[in-house]
Amino acid sequence: MIDQLNRYVFRFFLVILFQVLILNNIQFSGYINPYFYIWYIMVLPFDTPGWALLLCAFFLGFGVDVFPQGISGNGSSLGTHTAATLLIAFMRPTILRWINPRDDYEPGTFPDTKNYGILWFISYALIMIGIHHFTLFFLEDLSLRDFLRTLLRVFMSGIFTLIIVLLWEGIRFRIPR
């Protein structure tokens, strides 16, 4: 139990550092900035209590918000990542209920590719990433000045986030069949 808790704490900091030190510094083109860190919220155990889920999301988003890119370099106001991550954490139980496999989730498993296969995970990840990126980019560009361009950013960044999340899952489980 303590062991598992330690692993999640370690993973928490790892994900934030990976996001702010590496991903935020990669500028593929004007539209693309992947936000891999929400993977942490996606693969938390099924039986995570609600309050823990929300607190994790809050500190995760806040961590990404506060780090170097979060304040000035990001061009977003403080709190955008926090708000977007909180929202997907709040919606996670509902989303999991929507897309549950035919024989339901087995107790003691995790929502990842190893347990429920890559296709299930892609649909799960797409919904989570979609909601997160949509909220994030629209909060960033509050005025809705250029709806289509923001939508394009949501789309492009979302695809990249998905690719990185899947790659990471692949590395974790050496591509399960």
């Binding site: 609600g50 929300l54 709190g79 708000a83 909180l86 509050l142």
Partner: peptide, 20 residues
């Protein structure tokens, strides 16, 4: 409704940072 209440409180806090 603790889940919903915690969410609303934290989200209000986050959004107030955005719209400050």
């Amino acid at each position: 409704f603790s889940f919903q209440i915690i969410f609303v409180i934290l989200e209000i806090f986050a959004l107030s940072m955005v719209f400050k």
